[in-house]
Design a protein around this nucleic acid. Structure first.
Length: 324
DNA sequence: CATCGATGTTGAG
DNA sequence: TCAACCTCGATGG
């Protein structure tokens, strides 16, 4: 269910709370028993997201590859990052590496491994829910937990993934090679070039191309609808008929929305809002988007009723007046 | 309390 | 093109 921003946040959670730790890997549900055996006891050395896929690297040369699919989720507990701090972990770690003797003075976010683990629980999926006061550490696995990753201070339980497998480095490269550019992985120039080149070769409608993970990574049904509206672009326009500068602007806008989503932990696809409107949009989903899930409601710009149609089995929302 | 549908992808037909 | 995957919040009775 999560689009790209949630997966990047989850990778940041692993980066911040698991990388550098020895991990006990198990499969309480049993369906990943063999994979768990291959990873058990190794130390996590990297966590990265490309589009909606996540790759966790261990010091035995193996990787855990996870795709949450429609309803997968990670439940974290113990000494874990919550809320806004997750967005910046990668940046901060990089900065810390540069300044060799920089003191770790960021208090609140610090994952100090002293004493008992903090008793906080976070569910990370399309939404994030935090609760305090878990009874003990580690908590009992609840329901169908495909994989449990347990360190001395933190635990992550994976449930309902569409993909969960062990890969070697070559397998990771192969998986990533099938994916289109991700603005948080590829440089702006290279990413934009790849996106434009691919789209300009196809007659497929742009509304379908944006959902094709080999064309561009991380966009899902909400970002698709919102990006097209923000560009005032008719979803049915064939890729090869969209002007290059429009495609470049589209990729740039995706970059902006993705970064914002990673920082906020929410999809905020409207801008130019007052402070009050912004706060309201963050509280209620109904006020958060231009067209997504607004079938039959008046367009926020022109008043025309928003239209919904099925496209490749997914609901596509758009304004027939503004998007031409 | 039962049913539905979802921010996704794969693979069968 | 569509069911399956197998979770869970929202919805309705």
């Amino acid at each position: 269910m999560p689009e790209g921003h949630s997966v990047h946040r989850i990778a940041n959670q692993f980066e911040q709370s698991f990388v550098g730790h020895r991990v006990e890997v198990s499969s309480p549900q049993g369906r990943f028993a063999d994979g768990a055996t291959r990873l058990d006891g190794a130390t996590m050395v990297d966590a990265k997201a490309v589009g909606k896929q996540m790759f966790l690297e261990f010091d035995n040369g193996l990787w855990l590859h996870v795709h949450l699919g429609l309803y997968g989720a990670w439940d974290f507990a113990g000494d874990i990052a919550t809320g806004h701090s997750m967005a910046e972990s990668r940046t901060r770690r990089a900065a810390t590496r540069k300044a060799e003797n920089a003191p770790d003075d960021d208090g609140e976010d610090s994952m100090a491994s002293i004493g008992a683990p903090r008793r906080t629980r976070v569910r990370m999926a399309e939404q994030e829910k935090t609760e305090d006061d878990i009874e003990s550490f580690p908590p009992e696995p609840v329901g169908q937990v495909r994989v449990r990753l347990l360190t001395d201070t933190a635990v992550g339980d994976l449930r309902g993934p569409t993909k969960c497998e062990v890969l070697d480095a070559a397998g990771v490269d192969l998986a990533i090679s099938k994916l289109g550019p991700d603005p948080l992985v590829d440089s702006p120039k290279k990413g934009s070039d790849r996106f434009v080149t691919t789209v300009r070769k196809k007659r497929t409608p742009i509304g379908l191309l944006l959902m094709d993970q080999s064309v561009v990574s991380g966009i899902g049904n909400i970002y698709r609808a919102e990006l097209l509206f923000r560009a005032r672009l008719d979803p049915h326009t064939p890729g090869n008929q969209v002007p290059e500068e429009v495609l470049r602007a589209l990729y740039k806008d995706w970059t902006k929305l993705l970064k914002s989503g990673v920082e906020l932990g929410q999809m905020m696809t409207m801008d130019g809002l007052t402070k009050a409107q912004h706060a309201k949009a963050l509280r209620s989903r109904a006020d958060r988007h231009w067209v997504y899930h607004r079938e039959g409601l008046p367009c926020r710009v022109c008043g025309t009723n928003i239209v919904m149609e099925m496209a490749a089995g997914r609901k596509l929302y758009w304004c027939p007046t503004d998007q031409v």
